[in-house]
Structure formats: structure tokens, C-alpha cells
Amino acid sequence: MTNTSCIPSWAPRWVTGIRGSRLLLLTSLLLVGVACRAPEGGGPLRGTPLGVLTPKPDILLTTTDGAAFDFPRATAGYVTLLFFGYTHCPDICPVHMANLAAVLHKLPSTVAGRVKVIMVTVDPERDTPERLRAWLDNFDRDFIGLTGSVADITAMQQAVRLPPAVKEGEGDTYLVGHAAYVLAFTTDDQPPVAYPSGTRQSDWAHDLPQLARRMERAR
């Protein structure tokens, strides 16, 4: 990804704010501008900061072990990578997870140990906790899988400013349209950073140490 303008061509319209209010557009440009001018070493982030501060979602979902997951509390102090996907997805979801797993296994534990990866299923009907766990275990046994009611999963997507997933097609072989971004939450004073489908392992290897350093400084 070359990033000359700081707002890459793949940035969705809600990131660039074209569809939002002018105020949101100005805020986005201001925040992105700050991020571009003040690189934390190794150049600006390759992900795109959302235009607005967005807290971690405070909606109670369930882990693949059946335990209630208090999202803000369970992820406090960690770079938290949040993705909404489903296990019948052949392309975007497994590629994101595989890239993250590969990079986290290569990064030093001082960085990798400060990162939590969370995938929320957008297909709770077919993704049983067991199926979601087995799917995530292909990539990393430490990746956290969450499920819940359709209403709660929709509310969580809306809370982090993603369009809610929609079921497409009928019968057992339906697909799900969903946001293809991994959102990286760091400290409360920084907007989450969006990573689209197409983010490379080299992009993650570049950005994750910078995001982890934010957590160090906040301690």
C-alpha cells in the first residue's frame, strides 16, 4: 500500500467522510492529518484512523467457551483487533486471520503479547461456538471468538461505526455481506485504525509495533 495522500484510495466513504457531514469530513481530515505529521517511527500508519473517537464497544457477547465477555474490561491495556466475519467466508475472513496469525508469530513477544485478536461472528445461526472455535484454531488458539444474539451483534457493529452485516441468499448456502475491516483499538484518546481487506502481512508488521508503543506510553 502506498500512502502518499494519507487517505488511501481504498478508504471507504465513511472514513473519508464524503457521505457524512462537512464537520465529520473536517474532523476526519484533521485527525488523519495529525496522524500523518507525527509518525511514531517507521513512517505513518498504513491503516486509516477513523475520523472520530470511538470507544470500545460495551455490549456483552459470549466467548466460544460460553463465558460472558466484558469487552472493555477484558481488553484493557491491549491493542485490540476487532473483526466481524463468518466461518463460511472463503476469502476475506480467513485471509485477515491468517495474516494476523503469521505476523503475530513473527513479532517479538513485547509486541505480540500486547495484542488481542477478537472475531465476532456475523452468522450466529450457523457459527456454533464449537465451529467458531475450531475455525479460529486453524490460525491461532489465542484468538478470541464471540457470538450472541443477532440484535447484540448488530448493536456492536453499529457501536464501532460499521454497517451491520446482512444475510444474502436463501437455504443453507447463504452468504453474508459484512464490513471487511479489522479495527485496531488502542488508547481512549485515539480513534480506532481501520485495516481493509488487502492489508498485507508487511503492513501489519509495520503498524503493530507502533500501536503497541501507544499502549506502553499510556501505562
Binding site: 454497517p163 452485516a165 446482512v166
Partner: peptide, 13 residues
Amino acid sequence: LHSVVTVDGRSSM
């Protein structure tokens, strides 16, 4: 054979 089409931030096959 699928393509990925993204509309308003939501990607579909």
C-alpha cells in the same frame, strides 16, 4: 466464480 463488491463499507460476494 465470485467478485467482492463493497457498497457503503459492506463487502459482499
